[in-house]
Design a protein around this nucleic acid. Structure first.
Lengths: 219, 219, 219, 219
DNA sequence: GATGAATGAGCCTTCATTCAT
DNA sequence: GATGAATGAAGGCTCATTCAT
């Protein structure tokens, strides 16, 4: 009785938790928030019905943990993109925008799950809170970079408005992937974001990428 | 002509239907999609529980009708804004953008209701369909205007990308009203949209409004 | 406003009542007892929803009146058949059996309605009572005739058992019309009843009909 | 091994299913088909309200399974009676008729349940189907035996009509147990069926039972 | 007399949660 | 750790009944 069928059982708790969270994201994408049932989640995870309450105590907590998982994953993803980028603000902004259209985060399954939570966020402070923390750092970062670019490039833009516009545009393009799934692609949406950058910061960006600028040498 | 309790009785069907739809929007904004109950809707409308099934047959149909109502209302709103605008593309685009930030459509109650539907749209084709019709005409209009402005102003932008970016930015700013309700206002968001327009089409727009352009006089 | 559309209205109460009872029988035959709704009855009668309660006070009373109507109609039908028959017991029994297979009473619509009531009779004393009165006279009549025939023909049968058997056989054959509707006909069932009579009372009946018997002349 | 309240928990599914089916038959007999509620069934079974949907998915399926249970049970009962009977057709027919009046199947509870289904059978094809299968084999068996007896005894009867008449008579007598419950008994009804047999097949049956016939010895 | 909007009790059904095994 | 039978609260839906018009 130590075959693979049993090997699947009695996994460490963290393994089970992530397995259930991934199943939750799948179901959220497939059926939406309102029709999500723990039975569906358990079945997709290939586990029994009672298991969710065992690992998460309640449906509410499973959903909160799922959102937190997604928020953490997303935050880590763009932080890593920033780390890999150079020190120049333009390069950093470019990396930040590019990260948003990486298949890792920009795919229908995950965006559908995000959108499911957004739809309930109005009436659930906890969701607002979790999204808010993540968003705050993200927009602060965007704002900081826009300020640097505006200063650097001598643009006359209001950097905070530009940052907010860019933030909104990125979110809006994610939604487009959901709602115009038949008629657009991730690449097209990325092209739109790039076009936006080149228009707003023509001294820094071309469709081909970041302009190597005259000025103090980058490390 | 007894008291209001009696005056409430026996209204024509269309009156009741709209009354119930408005109550549905209220509840959607307050409790979200997943927690919406017909009992809550009926209570908010000051009517009895059975009334929704009498007028809409089912909860599903009530929600569909509610979304359709909102889509129609929004479409009519921006169409009217276009009609009131001049013939010049710049004036028309300005009017279209301004309409999106009118308190009539840009308020937390309605945007929360929209967002509730978006959250379920992935898994409910009927919602996608209703939103899709409305969105298609709206983005076609945006794209047409952007093309005209690009041609008129001699910009080097890709007009279709610019239009898509503007569309996404407008949607994203609506979401901001929901999620940053404590820290931003409708006016601020509008300012961001205006800033965007002035950056993208500097020959046509200033923060103060549409530039009267040299060239063939507008009617 | 005195057109035919209005002429349909404001009928005398008895006309309306019978109209509704007939619609009830139709619906009983179509949907069965459990799924009968007043809305269906009213719609089939071409009248408005509130009308049933106006004329019958309640659904319960409508059903009771419908059963009573059917019982009266059936009783009158076989009483008239008896009246048309001669005085000889054989002729009377033959007429009684033949009446049960007349298209007027022996058709799927009416038998389905009867059967719907039988299904509920166990748990509704009022139905039992109404059917019981009718049945009692009917079986008394059958019993009387069987006794006369047994005495007349010198059969060794127990006349009461024979009468009960005949009664049961007639009811059973009605059920067959319902349940073997695809594979049998009223005529076949009648033939079975006739065969039964000729076997039980061979001195009185042949497949062709009642035997004119030697003995004291009939009036 | 706590008290009975605990012992009731966690039975194997088939046990629960049969328990619920028996409770359904009880309630059908008590309240009739139209007034049957799952709450009543669950309460009679001493279980909670949700249990029926857990084991049967829906009320409709519970009822179908109940009817199937009854049909199977009845079919098995008379098949076993046939197996215990000898090989002589007369003995087999006698056994078949006797089986129909055994207290196991011929009691008010079960006949009331049957009758409840018959009342709805007209409008529910699935009920017709389930009853139909059972009835078909039963009447085929009756018909086969009647044909043998007619051939054996040199009767001039039409064996198919005789078989149909017997079938109808047996069903009709069951109904009598329901509707004349105060004035008749199972024994009386059985006597009527026996009388019928002795009249129709006098060479084979006497009130005391099957006649040992002259002729080829039975195995 | 007749209509049909309105009511509200009751029921089926779903589903998160519990817990014996 | 894991299972799945069992529970019971909650909500959608039906429909008999009422009643203003």
């Amino acid at each position: 009785m130590a075959g693979p069928a049993k090997a699947r059982r009695r996994q460490a708790a963290p393994v089970r938790r992530e397995q259930l969270i991934r199943a939750t994201i799948d179901e959220l994408a497939k059926r939406g928030y309102a029709d999500l049932t723990l039975a569906d989640v358990a079945e997709r995870a290939g586990l029994s019905r009672g298991i969710v309450n065992f690992h998460f105590d309640s449906k509410r907590k499973l959903l909160v943990e799922t959102l937190r998982f997604m928020a953490d994953e997303y935050a880590e993803f763009w932080h890593q993109a920033l780390e890999r980028a150079g020190l120049a603000p333009a390069e950093r902004l470019w990396a930040l925008v590019a990260a948003d259209f990486d298949a890792e985060v920009c795919n229908r399954r995950k965006i559908a799950a995000w959108c499911a939570f957004w739809g309930e966020a109005k009436s659930r402070p906890i969701y607002r809170e979790i999204c808010g923390e993540r968003d705050l750092i993200h927009s602060d970062t965007l704002r900081g970079l826009c300020r640097e670019l505006v200063a650097e490039g001598g643009y006359e833009h209001d950097p905070d408005r530009v940052a907010e516009g860019l933030d909104a545009l990125l979110e809006g393009l994610w939604l487009h992937l959901l709602f115009q799934s038949g008629t657009t692609t991730r690449e097209t949406l990325y092209a739109t974001a790039v076009e936006h950058l080149t228009i707003v910061f023509p001294e820094h960006f071309t469709p081909a990428g970041v302009l190597r600028r005259a000025g103090p040498p980058q490390t």
